[in-house]
Amino acid sequence: MQVDPRGQRFAAAVTTVVLIGVLVQGSWVLLACQALVFALGTVFGLRYAPYGMVFKLLIRPRLAPPKDYEDAAPPRFAQGVGLVFALVGTAGYALGIDWLGIGATAFALGAAFLNAAFGFCLGCEMYLLIRRISPKKHSDWEVPA
């Protein structure tokens, strides 16, 4: 599946605003809602990610067609990374371990801001690095006896 990279930047911008709100309010409920957004995109795919749906329905029709598309796998992986940080942060805030909530939220915010402001998807780069260093599966390998 291919996705419009402008939609990913839009989602990152909305996520940035939400995570700033989490840090200002110290709200585990708001961070849990963001975790749900990440979970939907990770588990069901980017077409079911709420911010992506807003982009597709309200913003993309007003824009020119994208110059190019990108593979959905790296941004979907990035949603999973965001989910992990959001879950850790939610647990930190909910359990009264504020430093953990703040730290996890700050890391997620940094990654979202990089994507929103500069188009640099940290989770996507992690995905590509993992793909490069993971062993390749070859069907022509022989199974040792």
Rank of each mutant, 00 (worst) to 15 (best):
I59H: 13
W28M: 09
K67L: 09
G80W: 04
W28P: 04
G82L: 00
L57K: 10
A78S: 08
T90Q: 02
D98G: 07
S27H: 15
G96N: 03
A11C: 02
A78L: 06
G26F: 10
L57Y: 07
P61E: 06
L100Y: 05
F38P: 07
V43C: 10
V18A: 02
G21P: 15
A11L: 02
P74S: 03
A49K: 11
L58V: 06
A13E: 05
A91E: 12
P66K: 09
V84T: 08
A13T: 04
G41K: 09
L46N: 05
E70L: 14
P75W: 10
I97H: 13
F10Y: 03
L19K: 01
Y93G: 03
A86P: 07
I20Y: 10
A35H: 07
Q34D: 11
Q34R: 13
E70F: 10
L63N: 07
T42I: 01
F44N: 13
G89F: 00
V14A: 12
L23N: 07
L31V: 09
R47P: 12
F44I: 11
P74T: 04
G26L: 06
A86Y: 15
Y51T: 03
A13W: 08
T90P: 02
Y93M: 13
P75R: 00
A39I: 08
Y48F: 12
V54C: 07
W99H: 10
G82M: 14
V43H: 14
V43W: 11
A49D: 15
A39Q: 08
L31G: 09
R47F: 13
L87F: 03
P50W: 05
V81R: 08
L30F: 14
L30R: 01
I59P: 14
P75I: 03
P61A: 08
A11M: 07
Q79S: 05
W28A: 05
G52C: 13
Q34G: 07
V54G: 05
G80S: 06
G89L: 02
D71I: 14
E70M: 13
A78W: 00
F38H: 13
D98F: 00
G82A: 13
V84C: 12
R62V: 12
F38T: 03
F10G: 01
A72K: 05
F77Q: 04
V54S: 10
M53K: 07
V24G: 15
D68Y: 13
T90I: 04
L19H: 00
T42S: 11
S27T: 01
R60A: 11
G45M: 10
R47D: 04
P61S: 04
Y93Q: 08
Y93I: 05
A13D: 11
V22P: 01
P61I: 10
L31P: 05
A86T: 04
A94T: 09
L19W: 04
V84Q: 06
P50D: 06
G21Q: 13
T15M: 01
G52M: 06
A91M: 00
P50F: 03
F38N: 00
V37F: 08
L30D: 10
T16K: 02
V81A: 04
Y51N: 14
A94I: 03
